[in-house]
Structures are given as structure tokens and as C-alpha cells.
């Protein structure tokens, strides 16, 4: 199937998904479940990755600063900028594309091959809206919070390494974190996160929804969903960076 055909089918599915839910009470319940499942359930891995990202950036920056003309607080400054502008929104999105994306594609794909989606349709329920809308909405709501938490944990990781190893003093590290801080960077990260949240839920939903065959097809759909989401995240990251920062 060619790219245009995929885009057309994807657009039609998303248009169906964004129709008004049949019962708001059920939608709210689904939304809470998805916030817990997709968001809160990802907190652990996000915390671990963010901590070590911050720690590694601290060590890398510190070990690469040889010049006496570069102040030591550059380490804190670099950690902050890297975490806010790129690592927290983009790397976390890529991690979630793997974790959440494969989960969504396999869940919906299994429902497709076991006729559960047909059952929803026969019951007169818009299956796309019932299954996909709560996932997209949940990710768009919760992911910005996850990314902000990731930023803090990353910077805390750098602080602990600075304190534990002494490669930079904690006061210089903290000064670097505060140095020339512009809130626009955080807004930029949140805008990116909202786009990425849509990508990591909508694309796997699409692959899952149109799964054909049996368990092998579910696995294939899951793999395609992760690969495609990751590529689209990197492409959209480039486009948004160009649009927002230049």
C-alpha cells in the first residue's frame, strides 16, 4: 500500500475517532483508565531514563570542557538546555513510542483479530471513537506532565552526580541551571510533546485497527507501529524545531 493510501485511511480513521462519544460517562471512565495506564504506568521508566540522561550529560559535558575560558557552570546550563529542549520531549517520546505504541497496537490488533471490534460495531458503537479517542486524549493531557517531571528528574540526576563525584561544585551546577533561563524553552517542549503524544497514540491505533490475520499479524502491526511512530516523531521534531526556534 502506498504512502498516500495510508495517509488517506489514517485521516478517515482519526476523523471517525474524533466524533462525539456515545456516552460521556463511559468516555470519562475510559479516559481515566488510559491516563493511569499510558501515563502513570510509564512514570517508572521515564524517571529511570531521565535520571541517567541528566547524570550522563553532566559527566560528558564536564569531561569535555578543557578550556579555562569556559566557566564550570556551563555543565548545569548544558544539562538544563539539553533536558528541556531535546532530551525530555523527544527521547521520552521515542521511549513511549516503544512502550505505549506497541501496547496500543497489540491491544487494538488483538481486538480486531478476535472480532471484538466487529462486536462493538454490531452493537451500534463507533469503535474508532470508543477505542482510540480516550487514548489520544489521555496522552495529550498527561504527557506534558510526564515531560516536565522528566526535566526535573534529569536535572536532579546531574545534581546528584555533581555532588557525588565533585566534577563540578553543586553551587556552580545550580547557578548553571538558573543561568539565562527563558520560559519559552519549556513552552516549546510542551508544544512538541503534544504533537508527539498524538503521534504515539494515533499511529499505533491505526496499525492495530487495520490488522488482518492472526497473532503474527498483531506482532507485525506492533513492530510497524513503533518504527513508523519513531520516524514520524523525528521528522515532526525537525519541522517543529525549524518552525519554532528559527
Amino acid at each position: 500500500m502506498n504512502l498516500l493510501s495510508h495517509i488517506g485511511k489514517f485521516s478517515m480513521l482519526i476523523a471517525r475517532a474524533f466524533s462525539k462519544p456515545e456516552k460521556m460517562k463511559i468516555f470519562r471512565r475510559q479516559l481515566m483508565f488510559e491516563i493511569d495506564s499510558l501515563g502513570i504506568g510509564s512514570m517508572g521508566i521515564i524517571a529511570i531514563i531521565s535520571f541517567f540522561m541528566g547524570a550522563v550529560i553532566t559527566i560528558q559535558t564536564s569531561s569535555n570542557i578543557d578550556s579555562a575560558f569556559i566557566p564550570a557552570y556551563t555543565v548545569g546550563f548544558t544539562v538544563r538546555q539539553s533536558m528541556i529542549l531535546e532530551f525530555a520531549p523527544t527521547i521520552i517520546a521515542l521511549i513511549l513510542a516503544g512502550k505505549v505504541g506497541s501496547n496500543i497496537a497489540s491491544e487494538i490488533g488483538t481486538m480486531r483479530v478476535s472480532e471484538q471490534i466487529d462486536a462493538l460495531e454490531i452493537m451500534g458503537i463507533n469503535s474508532a471513537s470508543y477505542l482510540i479517542l480516550p487514548k489520544i486524549t489521555a496522552a495529550v493531557i498527561i504527557n506534558p506532565f510526564l515531560v516536565i517531571i522528566s526535566m526535573f528528574i534529569g536535572m536532579a540526576g546531574g545534581y546528584i552526580v555533581a555532588w557525588g563525584t565533585g566534577i563540578v561544585t553543586t553551587s556552580e551546577y545550580l547557578y548553571g541551571l538558573e543561568y539565562d533561563f527563558k520560559i519559552f524553552g519549556v513552552y516549546y517542549a510542551i508544544v512538541k510533546t503534544i504533537f508527539f503524544a498524538f503521534i504515539i497514540t494515533a499511529i499505533p491505533s491505526y496499525y492495530g485497527y487495520y490488522t488482518k490475520g492472526g497473532s503474527l499479524a498483531v506482532g507485525a502491526a506492533s513492530t510497524k507501529a513503533v518504527v513508523t511512530s519513531s520516524i514520524v516523531i523525528l521528522f515532526v521534531n525537525y519541522v517543529l524545531t525549524q518552525l519554532l526556534l528559527i
Partner: peptide, 19 residues
């Protein structure tokens, strides 16, 4: 069609119960 479908019950070959 969705309205008519609320008048339809269907028993699927694999049951299609929600896991």
C-alpha cells in the same frame, strides 16, 4: 445504520467477549 444495529444481537464464532 448504528441505530438499526442497536436492534441487532450477534453471537460471534469466537465469542468476541471483551477480555
Amino acid at each position: 445504520r448504528q441505530e438499526i444495529r442497536t436492534e441487532i444481537g450477534m453471537l460471534f464464532q469466537g465469542n468476541a467477549l471483551f477480555d
